[in-house]
Computed example of a mutant assay.
Amino acid sequence: MIIDFGDGFFLRQATEADHPALAMICLKTGDAGQDATGREDAPDLLGQIYTIPYQVLEPDLAFIVDGPTGAAGYLLGAKDTKAFNAGLAAKWYPRLRAQVTDPGPDRARWSGSDWARHQIHHRDFTIPPALAAYPSHGHIDLLPQARGKGIGRRAMAFLEQRLAALGSRGLCLEVMPDNHNALRFYRAIGFAVLREPGLPDHSIYVAKRLTTAPEIVRTGDRVNGGR
């Protein structure tokens, strides 16, 4: 256990055994924070794109939020987005491309998870210059049973402290424009919406400067070397 959130919820390191949970949570929050199960015909693809690679390529910054009934969220980070993307391009995506068929460029012919299949075959790993001041990035998603308890705020504070202790000077996250709850949350914890030229139109980036300092765990958080 890394942080005890109370009420049976706690943060722990993610392991390879958590890959199904990472995929499940990603699917259950994959529609702008809501359940995307009804939309996808290949439900595991979201996890293969958005969550599982972090446990494989950046295991020290991959965490599970566990609750009374099992995995209820995840917290994922990459200290150096450029290096992480290079790992995806060299090690992760070639395997995925061998497993799925490119549906082609005609979006009118897409159905189910074709958008994800297309992304796998045409993923752009370049980083917009506007993100240069924020070399780290992260993801957090919580299932409904873990929301409204302050878990998201405390988990993000932990990730910021961990990245700062590793020497990162800035953290950014990508948010879908229609995920208004997420945007309100990030603003409430001190992230600013970036409106710089060159950022993609299909998503919003929120960012925060980090002060490099020894890692600090908030009062009341229980720290332990293992579960």
Rank of each mutant, 00 (worst) to 15 (best):
G8N: 14
R12T: 00
Q13N: 13
A14K: 03
A14D: 06
T15A: 02
E16R: 12
D18T: 02
D18Q: 04
H19I: 10
A21V: 03
A21G: 07
I25H: 08
I25F: 15
L27Q: 09
K28W: 05
G33A: 01
Q34R: 10
Q34A: 10
Q34I: 01
D35Y: 09
R39F: 15
A42P: 00
D44H: 13
Q48K: 13
Y50S: 02
Q55G: 12
L57S: 06
P59N: 10
F63M: 06
G70Q: 12
G73L: 02
Y74T: 04
L76I: 02
A78H: 11
T81Y: 07
A83F: 03
F84V: 04
A86D: 14
A86Y: 08
A90R: 15
L96R: 02
A98M: 09
V100Y: 10
G104V: 05
R107H: 10
R107W: 09
A108R: 08
D114N: 08
D114K: 06
W115V: 15
R117I: 07
H118E: 08
H118W: 15
H121P: 02
H122I: 07
R123E: 13
D124K: 09
I127Q: 00
P129A: 06
A133H: 13
A133G: 10
H137V: 12
L142E: 04
Q145E: 15
R147C: 10
R147A: 06
G148D: 05
G148R: 01
G150N: 08
R153I: 03
A157P: 06
F158G: 07
E160A: 13
G167V: 04
S168V: 01
R169F: 05
C172A: 15
L173P: 12
L173H: 15
E174T: 11
M176T: 09
D178P: 05
N179E: 10
N181Y: 03
L183P: 05
F185D: 02
R187G: 13
A188Y: 06
G190H: 04
G190M: 05
F191V: 01
A192L: 11
R195I: 03
E196Y: 07
P197E: 04
L199D: 01
D201I: 00
Y205A: 10
P214T: 03
I216R: 15
I216D: 15
I216W: 14
R218L: 14
D221V: 06
G225I: 06
G225D: 09
G226T: 11
